[in-house]
């Protein structure tokens, strides 16, 4: 009375699938199902506290469109800021990371220590770092202002100024995420055969030419990968803004708010989960569009 007539090898495979099924079911239920559910919710006047959720068609999207058309609205500010975060953050972060990676690639003495130092912020909790930065940015007592004072330079309001708040938040995010980009670039640099450089040296190429015509093209896969990944992460910015602004509101005057923060506030502060879902769908469309464009423009083959 043996239940299964399976060979040992087959039984092993069956078990492997059973074990794999658990994370797959979990992933489908926790990540994929809610994502699809958001599409559905965006068509409803969805109030989580309410027992009934009336269907409203595309009303939430119409509201989103009219908010974006206003001279000034929190939703409009959220989209504008998010675009600014990406346009400023991604290039600056990647350029800095590339420069650091090129330097780290040159040094041998203490190189591991340096790598650890650059990677450390990436593995530290964003919230903890954000709070430390918030203190560093403090008027009067914050380290940055103390340093400015020592140098007899005027004090800066940083997070309290509608003009400086966004760059101030961005500085933290760039710094924190840089370690990751550095590691990817370093791995990419290691892949480039030394013979190319030797050949370039024999031909008498300048350092700039070596970089421009050997390093940069051969790093292309790493650059594409990071460009896509970092763009997505900047588009989804949330935690640093919540931690660094007063009561997590994305202020002052909506200067730092992001689309994801707007989603959160609409959904859980104002209980407009339907409208929040329409924002999510818009963000999803943005991420999808940007990713497709980036992949098609930047991933052409290099020979």
């Amino acid at each position: 009375m043996r239940p299964w007539h399976l060979t040992l090898a087959r039984r092993k495979i069956v078990w492997a699938y059973i074990f794999l099924a658990i994370p797959i079911v979990f992933f489908a239920y926790i990540r994929i199902y809610p994502a699809l559910f958001a599409f559905q919710m965006s068509l409803y006047d969805y109030n989580p506290l309410s027992a009934e959720q009336p269907y409203v068609g595309f009303e939430n999207y119409e509201k989103l469109w009219s908010e974006l058309g206003k001279r000034k609205s929190p939703t409009k500010a959220a989209f504008q800021n998010t675009i600014n975060y990406v346009l400023l953050g991604v290039p600056v972060q990647l350029c800095l990371a590339l420069a650091v990676a090129l330097m780290l690639n040159e040094i041998r003495f203490l190189s591991t220590i340096y790598r650890i130092l650059f990677f450390l912020p990436f593995v530290t909790s964003t919230i903890a770092i954000a709070w430390v930065f918030r203190m560093l940015y403090q008027p009067r007592f914050g380290l940055f202002n103390v340093v400015l004072q020592l140098l007899s330079l005027p004090q800066q309001p940083f997070l309290n100024s509608p003009q400086q708040a966004l760059p101030s938040v961005l500085a933290l995010v760039i710094w924190q995420g840089m370690g990751f980009a550095v590691i990817i670039f370093l791995a990419g640099l290691k892949q480039i055969p030394r013979t190319y450089y030797e050949a370039a040296e024999v031909d008498g190429a300048s350092r700039w030419h070596t970089f421009r015509y050997i390093t940069l093209p051969l790093l292309n896969p790493s650059i594409v990968y990071l460009l896509v990944l970092q763009t997505i992460s900047f588009l989804r910015m949330f935690a640093p803004v919540v931690a660094m602004t007063e009561q997590g509101r994305g202020g002052p005057l909506d200067a730092t708010t992001t689309v994801v923060l707007r989603v959160y506030r609409e959904a859980f502060q104002s209980f407009n989960m339907g409208y929040a879902s329409s924002l999510t769908v818009a963000l999803f469309a943005m991420i999808l569009g940007v990713t497709i464009i980036q992949l098609s423009v930047t991933s052409r083959r290099i020979n």
Partner: peptide, 19 residues
Amino acid sequence: DESAQRQVLLDAYDLVVLG
């Protein structure tokens, strides 16, 4: 809508002092 109505005055203050 307490939180929204509160925000309106907070923003008005910031508009004067910061803006």
